[in-house]
Design a protein around this nucleic acid. Structure first.
Ligand SMILES: Nc1ncnc2c1ncn2[C@@H]1O[C@H](COP(=O)(O)OP(=O)(O)OP(=O)(O)O)[C@@H](O)[C@H]1O
Length: 634
DNA sequence: CCGTATTGAGAAAAT
DNA sequence: CTCAATACGG
C-alpha cells in the first residue's frame, strides 16, 4: 500500500492536514480510515511534531505492527530516527505500569480461568456448580466498566447483596484477586484498571504522560469500552486536546466485552472543538459487495445512515454455496478455492470466515484432504502448553516466588508430583528423601544458571539453551508426531524471540509481555488460505472471502440466557464480514451440522434470506439461469 | 508417582 | 464427539 498524500482524496487530505485539536473521522468499512490515520501521523512529523510525542492506539498488536512498519519506512527514507509509540490499550497499560516500577507477570485467560476454579473450590463450590468462564466474564465485565474490586465492594457493601450472582461475586472476586496477588499476576483487565488508577491518582504522572504524548490517535474507537474511554481522557491534555479518533458505529462488534459505541457518538460533545470528517468513498470492495453490505446494515435502527459509495465497478456477482452438511460446505469451498488458485490468486489473499471457532474443524479437514495450504488464525498459539512449559523455567528463574510456574517446571522432574511440590512450597525440603532433595537441588542450580544466562545472552539464545538444558527437547523428541509438533512450535517461538536483540532481564520481560498480549500468530511464518472468526477479521481485507455457516442460530448466533445483549450486533458482525472482501464474496450454509456429535437441522440464516435475490447460486455459476427457480429447498 | 480407564459435562466472540 | 477431571492399580 502507498501512503503518498497525492493518493488521498480531498476528505482524507482534510483529515491529514488538520494538525491540531480534536478530530473525528467517521466512515463505512473500506473508506480508508486506517490509511488516513497513518498518513496523518506521517504528516504531523513532516510538520515538525516529534515522533516521540505521538501515540497511536489500535485494536490488536498486529494492527499496531502494520501501522508501525508503514510509518517506519516513511521515516527511514527521511532519516528520522525517532519513532511514535504504537500499540493496544493493553500494551500501553503494561508499558506505563512497568515504567513506574510495577513488577508483575500477565495472567492470560487460561491462567485466569485456573484461578477462578481454585477460588470456587476454596469457597466450597462443587465442581460444575457454577461455570468458571461465566464468573470470569462477569468480573472482567465489571473491570471493563471501570469497577475495581474496591468499587464493587463499596457499591455492594453489607446488606446490598441480593441475587445469587452478586453473592457469588462477593465471595469469588476477592479470592480471585488474592490469588492474582500471591501469584504476582495482573490479568488483562488489570492492565487497564491499574493504569487508570495510577494516572487518576497521580497528577504529576498524568501531566507527564499528557506532555509526553501530545498527539493521540485511536483506531476502531467505536469498540472502546468504559475503562479505555477513561484512559483516553486521562491521557489527553484537556487544555490542548490533540486527539484524533477514527471509527464506524456499524462495525461495533465487541459490545459483549463492554465496548460502548456512545464513546464515539459523544466524542464531539466531549471535545467541543472537534472537527468531524466523514469519508464516503469506498476503495476496497466492488459495488456488488457494497450493495449487499448496505442492504444488510440498513435494517438496523440504532445507527446513523451514511454513504459508502463504491469507487470500483460492479465486479463479480456474490455467490451462494448451499450444502447438505458442514463437510459438504467445506468441500464446495475447496472447489471454489481451487478455481481461484488456478487463476493465479495468492492463497494468503483468501479468507474463510466463521462465527464460532469450532467451525474451523471441518474446514481444516477438507484442506488437509485436498492438500491445500491453510492457516488457522486465532488459535492461541502462545497459550499452547509447550510454550508455557518452556517459559515456566524462565519465569521461575527470574521470580523464585512464582509458584504456578515453579510447579509447572518442577513437575517435569521424574517422580516429583503434587505432594512433593507442596512440601517444597512449604519449606519442608529436608523432610524429603535424599534422592529427591538432590533432584531439587539440581533444579535450583539450573534456575541459577538460567538467571545468569538471561543477563549474558539474548532472549532467543536463552530460550534455545533452556530448551535443551531443561530436558524438554529430549523428552519431546521421543514423543513421536505430537512431540515434533511441539518442537516446531518452540522453533516458532524462537523466531518471535529473535527480534529482541539485547541480553538482560528487561528485554526478556518485553518478550514475555509480548507473548502474553499477542493476539494471533499472523506474524509467524507465512502460509495459505486464512481461516478465522469474523471478530478476528476486523480491520483486515482479502481479495476473496468466504462467509460460512449462515444458518439460523449460528449466524446470527443465539446463546441461551443472555438478556442484556444488543440485538443488532450480529448484523453489524455480518456487515463487517461482508466488507472484508475486495473482489469475490462467497456465502455458504449447511442444512445440517453436527454439534457434540449430533446432527442438527438448520434453517438458512435470516441474513441470507434477505439478500437471496441478489446472489448467484452455486450450481448455476456457469449458466445464466434465473436465480428464483432454484430457491425452493426446505 | 504416574499411566490409563472412566465418566460426564461441554461449543460464545478475545485483548 | 472431545477433553478435563477423577478413580484406580501397579
Ligand atoms: N484515496 C485512496 N485511493 C486509493 N485507495 C485507497 C484510498 N484510500 C484507501 N484506499 C484503499 O482502500 C482500502 C481500505 O482502506 P483502510 O483499510 O484504511 O479502510 P478502513 O476504513 O480502515 O477500513 P475498515 O473500516 O474495514 O477498517 C485499502 O486497500 C486502502 O489502500
Amino acid at each position: 500500500m502507498n501512503f503518498e498524500p497525492a493518493k488521498l482524496n480531498s476528505e482524507q487530505l482534510q483529515a491529514v492536514n488538520t494538525l491540531a485539536g480534536p478530530v473525528l473521522i467517521i466512515a463505512g468499512a473500506g473508506a480508508g480510515k486506517t490509511k488516513t490515520l497513518v498518513s496523518r501521523i506521517v504528516n504531523l512529523i513532516d510538520h515538525g511534531t516529534r515522533p516521540n510525542n505521538i501515540l497511536g492506539l489500535t485494536f490488536t498488536n498486529k494492527a499496531a505492527g502494520e501501522m508501525f512498519s508503514r510509518i517506519d519506512s516513511s521515516l527511514r527514507e527521511k532519516h528520522i530516527p525517532e519513532r511514535p509509540w504504537l500499540g493496544t490499550f493493553h500494551s500501553l497499560g503494561t508499558k506505563i505500569l512497568r515504567d513506574n516500577g510495577y513488577k508483575f507477570n500477565i495472567a492470560d485467560r487460561n491462567d485466569s480461568i485456573r484461578y477462578i476454579k481454585r477460588a470456587l473450590k476454596q469457597a466450597g463450590y462443587e465442581n460444575n456448580q457454577c461455570d468458571p468462564k461465566s464468573v470470569l466474564a462477569t468480573i472482567s465485565r465489571y473491570k471493563a466498566d471501570g469497577f475495581s474490586l474496591n468499587d464493587f465492594q463499596k457499591a455492594f457493601g453489607d446488606g446490598q447483596i441480593k441475587g445469587f450472582w452478586e453473592k457469588l461475586m462477593s465471595q469469588i472476586w476477592p479470592q480471585y484477586e488474592k490469588i492474582l496477588m500471591t501469584e504476582n499476576n495482573l490479568d488483562f483487565d488489570d492492565l487497564l484498571l491499574k493504569t487508570r488508577n495510577l494516572l487518576s491518582e497521580n497528577d504529576r504522572l498524568r501531566k507527564k504522560y499528557q506532555n509526553r504524548w501530545s498527539h493521540i490517535h485511536i483506531d476502531e474507537y467505536q469498540d472502546t469500552n468504559k475503562i479505555q474511554y477513561q484512559l483516553t481522557h486521562l491521557l489527553t491534555n484537556p487544555q490542548n486536546p490533540n486527539i484524533c479518533v477514527v471509527g464506524d458505529i456499524d462495525q461495533s462488534i465487541y459490545g459483549w466485552r463492554g465496548a460502548d459505541m456512545r464513546n464515539i457518538i459523544q466524542f464531539s460533545k466531549d471535545f467541543p472543538e472537534t472537527k468531524t470528517i466523514i469519508l464516503e468513498k469506498n476503495y476496497r470492495s466492488t459495488a456488488n459487495i457494497l450493495y449487499l453490505a448496505d442492504k444488510i446494515i440498513s435494517v438496523n435502527k440504532n445507527r446513523i445512515n451514511k454513504i459508502n459509495k463504491a469507487h470500483k465497478d460492479d465486479g463479480e456477482p456474490v455467490k451462494l454455496l448451499s450444502a447438505w452438511s458442514e463437510n459438504d460446505e467445506a468441500e464446495k469451498i475447496i472447489t471454489e478455492i481451487k478455481k481461484l488458485l488456478q487463476q493465479g490468486l495468492d492463497p494468503n489473499d483468501i479468507a474463510i470466515l466463521y462465527r464460532l471457532n469450532f467451525q474451523s474443524r471441518a474446514l481444516e479437514e477438507a484442506f488437509l484432504k485436498a492438500g491445500l495450504p491453510y492457516k488457522v488464525i486465532g488459535v492461541k498459539f502462545f497459550q499452547r502448553a509447550e510454550i508455557k512449559d518452556l517459559l515456566s523455567y524462565i519465569i521461575s528463574a527470574l521470580d523464585r516466588e512464582n509458584w504456578s510456574n515453579l510447579k509447572r517446571a518442577l513437575s517435569f522432574l521424574p517422580e516429583i508430583g503434587k505432594v512433593t511440590i507442596a512440601k517444597i512450597a512449604s519449606g519442608e525440603v529436608e523432610k524429603l528423601p535424599p534422592i529427591t532433595q538432590n533432584k531439587i537441588k539440581k533444579f535450583y542450580n539450573l534456575l541459577d544458571k538460567i538467571e545468569k544466562l538471561v543477563e549474558k545472552e539474548s532472549p532467543k539464545e536463552v530460550l534455545n539453551k533452556v530448551f535443551s538444558l531443561s530436558g524438554l527437547a529430549d523428552k519431546w523428541r521421543q514423543e513421536g508426531e505430537e512431540g515434533l509438533e511441539k518442537i516446531a512450535n518452540i522453533k516458532e517461538l524462537l523466531v518471535v524471540a529473535s527480534k529482541y536483540k539485547n541480553p538482560g532481564e528487561e528485554e526478556m520481560i518485553k518478550l514475555l509481555d509480548e507473548v502474553a498480549l499477542a493476539s494471533d500468530q499472523d506474524e509467524i511464518s507465512a502460509g495459505g488460505v486464512r481461516l478465522m472468526t469474523v471478530h478476528a477479521s476486523k480491520g483486515l481485507e482479502f481479495h476473496s472471502v468466504f462467509i460460512t455457516g449462515l444458518e439460523e442460530g449460528l449466524f446470527p448466533h443465539e446463546y441461551p440466557g443472555e438478556d442484556d445483549h444488543d440485538p443488532e450486533e450480529e448484523r453489524r458482525l455480518f456487515y463487517v464480514a461482508i466488507t472484508r472482501a475486495r473482489e469475490n464474496l462467497f456465502l455458504s450454509y449447511a442444512q445440517s451440522r453436527s454439534i457434540f456429535g449430533r446432527q442438527n437441522i438448520n434453517q438458512m440464516s435470516i441474513f441470507l434470506e434477505e439478500i437471496l435475490d441478489d446472489l448467484k447460486i452455486d450450481e448455476e455459476l456457469d449458466q445464466e439461469e434465473p436465480v428464483k427457480e432454484y430457491l425452493t429447498y426446505d
